Amino acid sequence: MNLTNALIPQSWLLISLLLFAAVLARALFAAPWSVLKKPGIFNLVLGASVAVLAFWQIKASIHPGLNLHLLGATALTLLFGPWFAILALTLTLVLSTAWDGAWQAFALNGLLMVVLPVTVSWWIYRLVDSKLPNHFFIYVFFNAFFGAGVTIAVMGFAASWTLVLAGAYPLDYLLGNYLPYYLLMAWSEAMTTGMIITVLVVYRPHWVATFDDRHYIDRK
């Protein structure tokens, strides 16, 4: 989903801009910047942002604002934690917006495509970490596979209601022609994220901020 300028009511612009700016300011102050001093981590963050941008460009468009593409938010959240995930996805959104020029919709897109999915992904991770046994397969299945699927489904619902409230499309049209396909995307998002995280925690566990061998493997 990428909202265009024409779909956003003028009354929403300032509110969405203030909210997104507040989240970005919080991320800039809360992000553990010292982590970037570790060899390769800074390049990893930039590379991951560009990789997500590539996923965003592989999309199917139904009508203006009704685009279907992989999101990558759960993978970035597990890789870097919530604050760096927000900053990395914001960089991706900047590059994507520079391509299509929908700057008026930038902040609202940021709330829907950056803040919401990272928040959902992080909540799922924290819930799984606190309620379920610390096991490798639980980490991969629930945090990566299940978490990614739920995250993109939640974003699909949020995007649909946003379009309805904005008066861009009627609810019955979105329920019949948009949301079902978004829910199907949840499977692709889950599979892609699950495979990426599985490969990384096996071969490059030090790249995954939320994974620790001693926590999930060594005690088993």
Rank of each mutant, 00 (worst) to 15 (best):
V114T: 08
G72W: 02
G167P: 02
N134L: 14
A54V: 11
M185C: 12
F157L: 15
T74C: 14
K220H: 11
Q57G: 00
K220I: 14
N134Q: 13
I152K: 09
H206A: 15
F211E: 07
L24S: 04
V150N: 05
N43W: 14
I196F: 15
A158T: 02
N109A: 02
E189V: 08
L93N: 01
L163C: 01
G156I: 02
P180I: 03
E189W: 00
W161N: 00
A144K: 04
L111C: 10
W12E: 10
F42R: 15
P82N: 05
H135S: 09
V115H: 13
F80H: 03
F141P: 06
A31R: 09
W33L: 06
A148S: 15
N5Y: 07
A98W: 14
S16R: 07
P39W: 11
A98Q: 13
F137P: 00
G194H: 03
A148H: 07
A168L: 07
L179M: 11
A25H: 04
L108R: 14
F146E: 07
L53D: 10
L46P: 03
L132H: 13
N5L: 02
F157W: 15
D129T: 00
K37W: 09
V140W: 15
A25C: 10
I217K: 15
H206G: 01
N177M: 11
M113V: 02
A54T: 02
V52D: 07
